[in-house]
Design a protein around this nucleic acid. Structure first.
Lengths: 166, 166
DNA sequence: CCAGATTGGTACGTGCCACGGACTAAATTA
DNA sequence: TAATTTAGTCCGTGGCACGTACCAATCTGG
């Protein structure tokens, strides 16, 4: 299925050695992680978005709309995404019991198997990429990353509530 | 130009609170950075790959083939990519002086202007995302990220030389 | 020097992904 | 009950990525 992206070079967005070291390093690290995910997904003939779809469905049975919010996609994009996954037997659509307009999307055993393999391999690969760091450094990195992510989520939450009515 | 991706939720690939904290945190951080780049690119009607293309061309005038290596894409993908950028006046193709088969791709003033704006905004946004960390923590993070990236690059280099003949 | 291989690019067809708009059906509300 | 809102699909458009086929230029070995 046109697996794409194998090992793109980082292609430094900002070669300047100035105070942008951090931005550069984060950009490149982010590419590394992203490419790893793409590569692992490709091994299983999945795109990143398909992998994310299955990942989301591991512990949820959302409607199309909820799926759209979870993945940050338009509902019309979700339709096709689920179509393709369903065609491959990775997910199924079930009619909602409460709302006859709605559809509940759930993962099949095949899909679960796939995503479990993929996420295991992903974890392995990231862990090996991170192996050059000491245990203490890894813990530190984990913490720093988590703080950035959670601060960002906070921000967005506040922004959404104050700038829009949803 | 169908700007896509605005604020996808992270959609944690591995919700398990076990020893995968690091993998999770890195995955989410990577999504954050990636989405930031997508958002900034979208503001200028660029895709991530277009932005990377322009970024690469800021200090290079590669042939199509070199471009392919730099971006990790097939030459046939580069053709279309450069086509679209050229159509918008962001890059130009020039015949190579030395090899009449080759084409040299270079950025135009318009393209340079665009990518400079985008990369400035990207840096600003990343810096603001990272603001909750102290100066020392930011330096540390930068170092850790850089080490991972460079170790990975090393690996790839060695692997390529030992597993394939190029 | 020239025939055959190699290299650099393009063109075309396929498929995924993403969007917006138009549409249907069901649910909610007024 | 009529009007509106909500859930999902379908269609058209366009970017992105691939593989294949192809052409032109270059390089190689006789």
């Amino acid at each position: 299925m046109t697996s794409r992206n194998e090992t793109p070079s980082p292609a430094a967005p900002l070669p300047g050695g100035g105070p942008h070291d951090l931005v550069d390093a984060l950009a490149q690290l982010s590419f590394l992680v992203h490419n790893t995910l793409a590569e692992i997904s490709g091994r299983h003939d999945l795109s990143i978005i398909q992998t994310r779809l299955l990942g989301v469905l591991r512990d949820r049975e959302p409607t199309m709309q909820q799926l759209g919010r979870l993945l940050g996609l338009d509902k019309s994009s979700i339709s096709g995404l689920v179509d393709r996954a369903q065609r491959r037997g990775l997910v199924v659509r079930t009619a909602s019991a409460t709302d006859r307009r709605s559809v509940q999307v759930s993962i099949t055993d095949a899909g679960r198997h796939l995503v479990e393999q993929a996420s295991t391999q992903f974890a392995e690969q990231i862990e090996s990429a991170v192996a050059p760091l000491s245990g203490a450094e890894r813990r530190l990195l984990s913490q720093l990353a988590a703080r950035i992510v959670s601060a960002d989520a906070h921000h967005r939450g506040i922004d959404l509530r104050t700038t829009t009515d949803r």
